[in-house]
Design a protein around this nucleic acid. Structure first.
Lengths: 220, 220
DNA sequence: TAGATTGTTAATCGATTAACAATC
DNA sequence: TAGATTGTTAATCGATTAACAATC
């Protein structure tokens, strides 16, 4: 019933809806939305239905209402307190990423082993010694962790987190974590996206027999 | 024939294979590999077959050979010169991300509008004024661009890039780009991963009727 | 030969697309 | 009522799972 691909499309709708509202629109039809996100209308309608959003036949969807319904479905209507483990460049980038803050992700603290980093603050988030991880998570009753440690430290870090009470892990380390069933784990792999892009690019280059406009000659 | 999900799994195999080789292994069976990546054996075998890799019946896959075959399939055996457009925190993190460099992604330059950033170098990559984007791309014959500009600048940036000769775009801006068919575009949306995680977490919390071990009581 | 493992074919499942009925 | 649009049902497509034949 709950479709993974559909869930991944939801942020796109929210982006578009925000844009439409900024342009003064208050109602949008599924067809228009479909056009704006570049997906067929039935996909959009099914996606919206999944979230519990309802439109009005012959009219469309009320934008404010639709936004609220989508946000509620993903629990983006409340804030999610999280810890970040591993304050490398990727970790620090996530700390500063406004897009995530807008989706309710609120970093209560970051953790690292590097003495040079410990004690400093990034975007108002304190970096604490990794040794204090468990204590902090327990005391603050944090449920969500973002893991950006190196590959060889990821499994151990995750186990410590789970033991301390974490039950949702956003894992950016390039390893497959083995954890109890009740823990929700989302693996994020940038290389996967790059692989898709390169294979797609290769295919388009070789299969230059395709329909549609060809690559123009460069005007040097 | 070429399966999107399968392509996204390829980096995982490479990670595992590197680990195995570091442990002194030289051959691995599909079953063992399957176990290590947490996927059923037939999935692994189909994935490997897609890349053109062949094993030996009764024996398994030669690790060095398999690694080379997978890398060749994704064109990870050669370097891909790229420009980065938008030197915000996410952009800078990508510049410094070792994992991408290991996959052949080589940043020839980064571009930004911010006078404070222009002229500086990050990890050996010069940050140049955005106005020089086209000239640089043409002169250096760059084909790949990583777009990390704000949402409202993404479409225009992409059009400029394509006009200058780019035919593969890795888009981190939260918008759907409209570009000619011959351009390969890969949209990367961190919020999508977060949405998946939160929905999965919600489901696990509500459907606590599931099989398997329950979440233990916190030992406070 | 016997055991192990690849690689393929068929069956199932899930997601997308197409068609259309319902109704504001 | 007529037009527009939602929302559902059926058909298709793609990916995964299961079963097993081929063979080193």
């Amino acid at each position: 019933m709950s479709n993974k691909q559909a869930i991944r499309r939801l942020p796109m709708y929210l982006n578009i809806l925000r844009l439409l509202r900024e342009q003064g629109e208050s109602v949008v039809s599924g067809n228009k939305l479909a056009d704006l996100v570049g997906k067929p209308p039935p996909v959009v309608k099914k996606d919206l239905e999944m979230t519990g959003a309802r439109g009005v036949k012959g009219v469309g969807y009320e934008i404010r209402r639709l936004t609220r319904d989508i946000e509620a479905f993903v629990e983006w209507n409340r804030s999610h307190r999280a810890v970040l483990v591993g304050a490398g460049s990727l970790g620090l980038a996530l700390l500063g990423y406004e897009g995530l803050r807008r989706r309710g992700l609120e970093f209560a603290a970051a953790f690292d082993n590097d003495q040079k980093k410990i004690g400093s603050s990034v975007r108002g988030v304190k970096i604490l010694p990794a040794s204090r991880l468990e204590l902090f998570v327990r005391r603050e009753e944090i449920r969500l962790a973002v893991v950006t440690v190196p590959a060889n430290a990821a499994q151990e870090t995750a186990e410590r987190l789970v033991h301390a009470g974490i039950d949702a892990i956003w894992n950016f380390a390039p390893v497959v974590l083995t954890l109890p069933e009740y823990v929700a784990v989302q693996r994020e792999d940038l290389s996967a996206g790059l692989a898709e892009l390169l294979v797609d690019s290769k295919r388009k280059r070789t299969k230059a027999d395709g329909v549609g406009p060809d690559r123009p000659e460069p005007d040097v």
